[in-house]
Design a protein around this nucleic acid. Structure first.
Lengths: 219, 219
DNA sequence: CGGAAGATGTCAGCGAAATTTCAGCTTGGA
DNA sequence: TCCAAGCTGAAATTTCGCTGACATCTTCCG
């Protein structure tokens, strides 16, 4: 399986390449943004791993151009820890998942497998849970085929819940994901946000487990 | 969850310990570099918090020695603000994350959680005892495949018992583990808690040995 | 610019779930 | 047998999450 790795830090790139190859992937490595963009635009890959802090053309521009040119392979972005703007913009630009640096190789591999699996068989990466569909490319959400109009914050929240459908997501974790700029937050914005999502999506799609967090309830 | 704190400043150490314990961690504190190194080399921890500006053996040496000796628990280093070289050296020496001083306690907790989570990769660590399974990532419990609905306190209690399946756990130890602060042992909350767990899990899964405490009975 | 519409944040009160307390009961072991 | 350790159901208390109403912040367009 062919993977495109766009990363300027040679240490990280070598480390990642090594592990990916050991796991049976074929890795093409581009060091500069332009090279990465070109490769992704011209050739076929099962997935791309894209560092956002690149010299030359930056990662977000690359991603937007790929998506603009109908390149639909799944993209995993690497962001600096705490760089929440990047993460947000990345998701908006059509990334399928993100991983903050520094990361554990096992986690990179797991997430890569996940996005590849998701993209397999379907042209676009659509996260599904019962009647709920979230299309990460088109950035649209439907319930039983009806389009649902979500605000950016609501969309990111739902996206994170869908990415972690198999477990409960705590309020604290959601806070970190959605408002990473300040860790201290004594308000009930998460609860309000969940409430608004429920009103739009249907009362039962998001289940609460007191003390453990929220979880998409896929029936 | 057991955390090793290596920090010479008693004020910071006490503050950090307090907050960690309140958050449910069990903290071992070493004041001098040598002690910290020894503890980390000999015992098991879920993570370590390491101050780089230590008297005696300095933090980086400790970290390098641990890593040289295959000690793989995640390490969060505390550095003086702006000490750029230290950070780079720390990461090179095998640290998982760094936090510049002074820091907000909430951020320390968040980063600690993050490195512990990462160190487990995405893989779920499942504790098993006979027909009882406890998934630490999803925070779910099943008996003979049937999901069991536990409250946060019940879950933490069971988790601790499962982690110490090979011995009896006294009421006092459970009290310290679950309520951290010195808690007046005038109430029977532990007994009530065990009672509720038994009702949910099955009468025989938790055995009592009078005067010695409780223990998971894995048949 | 000014104002409207949309998005997000804050607050207070409520209800339900989780936890603690209590009183009386059971049981293991000297 | 006796008694303290442990058990249990129910009541009391505390905490957590939900909600509607409103405040504030953004964006966009005439």
């Amino acid at each position: 399986m062919r993977i495109l790795l766009v990363e300027d830090d040679m240490l990280i790139a070598r480390d990642v390449s090594l592990h990916l190859e050991r796991a049976g992937y074929l890795v093409e490595h581009a060091r500069m943004g332009e090279d990465g963009w070109f490769l992704g635009a011209e050739e076929e890959f099962a997935a791309a791993i894209l560092d956002l802090g690149l010299p030359g053309m930056d990662g977000l521009s690359i991603l937007r151009r790929w998506r603009g040119a109908e390149r639909t392979f799944p993209v995993l972005i690497l962001t600096a820890r705490g760089s929440w703007q990047e993460r947000v913009e990345g998701i908006d630009a059509g990334a399928d998942d993100y991983l903050p640096k520094p990361f554990q190789m096992a986690e990179l591999l797991a997430r890569l497998r996940a996005i590849v699996r998701r993209s397999h068989g379907q042209a676009s990466a659509v996260l599904a849970a019962g009647a709920l569909l979230l299309d990460t490319r088109a950035r649209t959400v439907t319930v039983e085929g009806l389009p649902i109009d979500l605000t950016p914050l609501e969309y990111r929240c739902l996206h994170h819940l869908m990415l972690n459908r198999d477990r409960h997501v705590t309020q604290l974790e959601l806070t970190e994901q959605l408002w990473a700029q300040d860790f201290e937050r004594e308000s009930n914005s998460v609860e309000v946000l969940i409430g608004r999502l429920r009103r739009k999506l249907g009362r039962d799609l998001i289940a609460t487990k007191r003390g453990f967090g929220y979880r998409i309830d896929a029936e």
